[in-house]
Design a protein around this nucleic acid. Structure first.
Lengths: 246, 246
DNA sequence: AAGTGGTCTAGACCACGAA
DNA sequence: TCGTGGTCTAGACCACTTG
């Protein structure tokens, strides 16, 4: 671990800067699974911070699944499979990258609509408001894997309909172009059978198994919904991973 | 909030004692949703602890969904629905109770076997060891909902085959009769179609949608697997709920 | 014995919300 | 202005692992 690339005058908390630095090294592969990380006291010295701050960075990395820690031994890089599919809020693009697959998309629908009552309710808006509708076939390694239909409160991201979402991540666009951070989501998962539309677009047969997720996503205040999304995944190709705590 | 019912000489950490105390008051209903909790500085004084310790108790309650906190305002009891159906490690019985449904079971298999290679691998034992096999049809409100097939390391719960699991919870039995606490689990979720066996036992047709979960559960040390379970749920009756964090 | 993570203290300054 | 949660410091003792 090299020196102090943290900015003590930045409004970004120190523990967060350090956490992100380590996370990038893990994701970038410059730290191998099971490789030993700097100890809390080493980080303290390297970055010129207190131990509690170093500790917080490592503790959060542990709870996010990037790191495991053993008393008396040290902190270590977790195996990638343990990082997958825990309770992280990710979009399709990031999900595929976690699985070491190349993501892709073909846009089916891209327009601003007036929501029906149910959709307006899901987004906590009234039915006169504008909603951005984006429907895409999502690919993994050039193979169709899912159909994703998402609805965004258009007043929070006006102009988003002019982006081309065949090659870009929706969540990245929200973050980088509209400065919208997502804080949390509520999601349901159920099983179903492919209908004609899904069969055609995903190259499967009608009646094949499908995994359906429905998600409501909230912005930074944790109270305001911005997205309601429904995705149908090919049941033969997609499995969801969850970590449970007692 | 009344006085100092914490034991400073106990090996149980102070932050944990306080956290459990508050959790019990929330679950017991003596603290209402959206009711204000003591501030960090009030806890500090009430329990005679430092602020960082009080803070840790509240922070963990927040990450477990019991509490929400707002800067400048205070800490408040979260709504029960935000506590439900997140990634809690629960068995079928508790899951049904959370959904306000009456659970039930019919035992199909109940014996001690020698594991094949894959199963031995899942449980981190060698294939000469004994494994307890329990297969049950699970009911919700007297209707068949799932087939649950679970495998336990028999050396950790010798004698468990003599219990009647048509009327009792496996996890409760492990906890109360064998003093085994479960710490965490890794679970996968996928979609499939009902086969003949499932169709017959769950009163559905072959080819109907099914939700399949596979779970490996670990005991208190978080490293030793004790259970490998596979459950198939009727896709038309069962939906899984997940909370995601950003 | 030395190093590690786990807990804990007693302070400090800050940004934010309400009065 | 005052109380709140958010961050941070510079120490401390403990239990655990490894040499």
């Amino acid at each position: 671990m090299n020196r102090a690339n943290v900015d003590k005058r930045s409004p970004v908390p120190l523990y967060y800067q350090i956490k992100e630095t380590i996370k990038e090294k893990i994701e970038g592969g410059s730290l191998e699974p099971h490789e030993r990380l700097p100890s809390e006291r080493e980080l303290e010295e390297d970055y010129g911070i207190s131990r509690m701050t170093a500790r917080r960075a490592l503790t959060e990395l542990e709870s996010e699944g990037y790191v495991y820690r053993e008393q008396g031994k040290g902190s270590f890089v977790a195996e990638p499979k343990l990082r997958q599919g825990l309770l992280q809020l990710t979009g399709f693009t990031e999900d595929m990258k976690n699985r070491q697959m190349k993501p892709g998309a073909r846009v089916l629908e891209n327009r601003v609509i007036e929501p029906d009552e149910e959709l307006a309710n899901n987004l906590s808006i009234d039915s006169g408001s504008n909603v951005f509708l984006l429907q895409r076939v999502r690919f993994a390694e050039e193979e169709p894997l899912a159909i994703e239909t998402t609805h965004l409160r258009y007043d929070l991201c006006e102009g988003i309909k002019d982006y081309d979402f065949s090659g870009r991540s929706l969540y990245t666009t929200l973050r980088e172009e509209f400065n919208i951070t997502l804080s949390r989501a509520e999601q349901s998962v159920e099983a179903s059978l492919a209908d004609e539309f899904e069969a055609k677009n995903l190259q499967v047969d009608q009646g094949d198994p499908m995994l359906i997720t429905e998600r409501t996503t909230y912005i930074g205040d944790e109270k305001t919904p911005i997205e309601y999304a429904r995705s149908t995944y090919r049941g033969d190709r997609y499995k969801l991973f969850v970590k449970l705590k007692g």
